[in-house]
Nucleic acid binder design. Sequence first.
RNA 1: GCCGAAAUGGCGGAAUUGGCAGACGCAAGGGACUUAAAAUCCCUCGGAAAUUAACUUCCGUGUCGGUUCGAGUCCGACUUUCGGCACCA
Length: 796
Amino acid sequence: MFDYKNVEKKWNEYWEKNQTFKTDVYDFSKPKFYCLDMFPYPSGEGLHMGHLFGYTASDALSRFKRLQGYNVLHPMGYDAFGLPAEQYAIKTGNHPNGFTQKNIANFRSQMKKIGLSIDWSKEISTCEPEYYKWTQWIVEQLYKNGLMKLQDMTVNWCEGLGTVLANDEIIDGKSERGGFPVVKRKMRQWVVDIPQYAEKLLDGLDNLDWPESTKLMQKNWIGKSTGAQLTFKVADTNYTFNVFTTRIDTLFGATYCVLAPEHPLVLKITAAQQKDSVLKYIDECAKQSDIERQDTTKEKTGVFTGAYAVNPATNQNIPIYIASYVLSTYAEGAIMAVPAHDERDFEFATKFNLPIIPVIEGGNKGECYTGDGKHINSGFINGLNTEQAKQAMNKWAEENKIGFAKTTYRLREWIFARQHYWGEPMPMYYDSKGNIYLTPETELPLTLPNITNYQPQGGLSPLANATDWVKFKKDGVEYTRELNTMPGSAGSSWYYMRYIDPHNDKVLADKKLLDHWLPVDLYVGGAEHAVGHLLYSRMWNKFLYEQGVHSHPEPFKKLIHQGMILASDGRKMSKRWGNVVNPDTAIAENGADVIRLFAMFMGPIQETKPWNSENIIGVSRFVEKIWALYTESGKIKDEENTNLDKIYNETVKKVTQDYEILSFNTAISQMMIFINAVSKENVFPSVYAKNFLILLNPIAPYITEELWQTIFKNNNTISYEKWPTFDESKLIEENVEMVVQINGKLRDKIVIKIDSTDEEVSAKAQELPTIKKLLEGKQIKKIIVVKNKIVNIVAI
RNA sequence: GCCGAAAUGGCGGAAUUGGCAGACGCAAGGGACUUAAAAUCCCUCGGAAAUUAACUUCCGUGUCGGUUCGAGUCCGACUUUCGGCACCA
């Protein structure tokens, strides 16, 4: 029996004592491989199966690359600022740091139990001043470059949490944490001008080895839209407003305009007799939650302002409405409505009896037509198709100073402020006039003050309670500090850089090291970060790249998302269902090797799949079989066994290829096939026995270390051995079995010399008695030979 | 509503470029060993027909159609599940 408990203890101590997995980042003599996991938020619940799964996969790859002779960087850290710690502090009055540190200690010990080959000397935590000093430094650079700014924003306000939330922190109109309702509110906020990077972020996607679906999600999130901006005059006033349209060609069919209810012009242009209804409508919209407002199944609403705009193409007056289907947050917050050729405008116009003028031929009468066609009722563009008409109209608009071609993005400013205590303090302060100052670099990190009351103060961060910290004097002048702290995504947007040089106190990280180690070669993490974290990180990376911090425009070369691990009942693991399987328990009961093998054997890592504990026995038997084979069978000898040559070389080849593409389930399957073959033989050549341990080591590090040491009397760890090579000539046999088909159906098989000519093969196939019989009375039309595989006789 | 991914035995899954569907493992059934059990080993294991048995035949990768000598794989339409977005002008 494999005594996994003692073996795990022994090797955990050995690895720690010998710093087996410490990476010398200055060693540039070997090729580098940077293997990164999305670091965990250290919750009170500890690691879950999803962590175990993803971390095991990246660890197996790290160990594989190490064995292949790469200098591997495989670090770990903690995304340690966050809401649960904040709420713990609010509830208990205790400092969130204690809670966080306790959880971190638990996470670290759990990860060690899985046998992860982490370089623990490079461990980081985003809540350490040593770390967030540089988060603050980056924020200051963003500010200096005009990318971090104060802006009046319509924000997602969550009263339940007393804070502003990012779009990706909201699910179905409720806060991701706590499930509290979220409403829109206008607030002055620190924002990162990420839209400035929209085009670069879009371009950069092309060359990344990422899942296509993730790239597409980022593309959609950025939401590039090409069209034109047009200026409309408000009739009988000096007011004008801009609209954005992708269909400038339909301008002749614009029969009304709509402003978003929040549009600044609304109150200025509303006619006296419409004032009441307009105010009432604006009020209604403000009160609506996100879910209500985004419900597209509901009938569109809106009111007439009493004002008219001038259609610049027809010079006719067209009514101006306000309606909630026009969003203040997108483009100009105003549209020209072309009901004949836009579904939404059509619905609205029908409801409010507004004129619908077709300007493109096609479609049915009385219906909205969005397709291409010849323009009609459109003055100088009559007869043109959509593309031609767009060009003509763009030219016309520019010449007449009415508008110009424009590209708009859906991507909005990244709201970079939370009304929390447990986050990085913003390194800004204000004088009595409201002028903004940056905390001097020499004074960074600006550390969190100690407070006792963690309750948010009427929309202000609990930092407001630290009066001594908030107000301070410098050269006799009184200043006030920024009270907001940074969002969770701040520290996680650059942590992969810090791992490379985690204790540098002069710079964020040595440029020479960053240039060598970036980009990350493999990034493993959940698909839930497809836009949020993975977009923010890319933007910070691009910014720091442009600042000359390092020389890599993209941070993560290859990305994979590990699938979600469900409970055996096919549902999500949840306390609510009582179906949670805890990694600690699973490891204690089966051993880390067995759990690692089991996790990797379940299926492709990208797939969501259930954790069926009863299947563990399969890999457990495999482990015991190996243990017995090496320790008891006496089969390992310095002899040859030609029966095993082929399967051995096949196994080395297949396992190597499969590890390379992270297909661990098929690699394990091949190793099982090999061990099954060995168990049928009397001799297991010691060269094969040694090399098999190396093949298995990335997934099952403990048993392989132990056998390596005890059976082969090696004093060194197996972790830096040389990856076995295979002999291609051993894979080629003299004869091959070929399938004989008639009309594509399997009828017989023949064994034939490898690489026989098509003629030889088809002649031999036709001599087979079964084939002869089946071909009786039939005429052979064609014979297709797939070399060394198939003969297909087509006959009628 | 729009975008994306997926669907293969009782179960997890495998199948190179379009070339023997079901590797490997679990569960199940049968047998060996044992006083017995556990463990281990051996055999069977998609469905149907037929057969003493070997053998054989037909059907079969969500549904319907197509391309092809040949389709789990390619094309078209659809169904279901999961993920994302959600009036984006």
